[in-house]
Amino acid sequence: MVDDPTTFGRARLSFADAAEIDDFVATLARFEQGELTPDKWRQYRLVRGTYGQRQSDDAQMLRVKIPQGVLTADQLDALADVGDRYSRGFGHITTRQNMQFHFVKLHDVELAMRRLADAGLTTREACGSAVRNITACPYAGVAADERFDVTPYAEALTRYLLRHPLSSTLPRKFKIAFEGCPVDHVGTAINDLAFRAVVSPDGRGRGFRVTAGGGTSIMATSADLLHEFLPASEIFRVAEAVLRVFHRLGDYEHKQRNRMKFLIRALGWTRWREEYDRELTQCRLNGTVPTLDIAPPASESRPEWAPASSPSVGHVAARVNAGRVTGPGLTPTIVPVFHTGDEAY
């Protein structure tokens, strides 16, 4: 793995913005001075990944986005520090590839955010009526049977929508997922918008089968087909068109029934699709929404390791399931990687 900061994928640029943390501190001061109502403060802090817990007057849950579930050792160190210094020594991994820390004191939230930002992590839009963390198949990039690695495309859409004007002004939360394997490991059908990797009939073009309107909880709904084959270059435009319809026609009043699936049900699929097609045309015509230009490799190798050989560093992957991280804690132990033939192997 080459640590190239200009690439999408496993080697990444930061998702954090220090100016946002400064703004959080200033807005908290305004709230404490009575210049901001409790409702306004609640709306603000939720979009910054901070929930107020019910157990005491000063207990917050801080949710950290881990886009596509990909972390570096430095980021694991940062998460461990936050857990040890400001929470209870551990964190919870969510089904949407976030990390949550409970019982964080309100004035420690800033310190936790700054430690996370140093490692490139953000809490922005991890909660509230926003585009939540964009998830990807946990086997992306290492599955031998995947059509292609969806990570660069999921990350590109993450960066496009992070801090986008629509992303934190929606009627309700909005969930997006990417899947590259024949088996739907990430659960695309229960997402508001989902992309499953497909290859064009001629075998040369990358694209996605796109579905929309899924969700669980009240009125569990399986997403409907939006595009059988969408060129990969169009994912920004499709996502923005869907968000524009949801932003313009969604229900801002009734929290228990204002996910996008309720809007689709109220309008009917045909009418909703007409609104979407209209917005998609606008996204394509006026040029304000760019296409995505990622040059795919000529081929993606599938490792065929002999039993006596060791994989290269770039082929080593660790996977965890959602839940509480127990044992020695989050702090990673950094050890040398030995190869066959090494004396210590």
Rank of each mutant, 00 (worst) to 15 (best):
T72N: 00
D22W: 06
Y51Q: 13
N98I: 00
L193Q: 05
Q282Y: 04
Y276H: 12
A26N: 10
G128H: 08
A117Q: 05
A308R: 12
D39K: 13
V25R: 14
F246W: 10
R48W: 04
Q43C: 12
A16C: 12
K255W: 00
A143Y: 09
A156Q: 11
W272C: 05
A80Y: 07
P165F: 08
A298W: 02
V313Q: 13
L121M: 12
T27M: 14
R132E: 00
S14R: 08
A220D: 06
H164N: 13
G323W: 01
S200C: 04
L225G: 05
L292C: 04
Q75W: 09
R271D: 14
N286F: 06
H102M: 11
C127L: 08
S87Y: 04
E240K: 07
P332C: 07
R206P: 01
V335A: 13
F24S: 07
G327I: 10
T151H: 06
Y86F: 15
P303G: 01
P336E: 09
R284P: 02
G213E: 03
Q33N: 15
S312F: 06
K173Y: 08
V142R: 13
A80V: 11
M1E: 10
L292M: 05
G187F: 05
T50H: 06
E234R: 14
D22E: 15
R259W: 00
T7I: 01
L330E: 00
G180A: 02
V320L: 14
P171L: 01
R10Y: 14
N286I: 01
G141F: 07
Q97V: 06
W41E: 01
M99Q: 09
D58A: 09
T188E: 05
L285V: 11
Q43G: 15
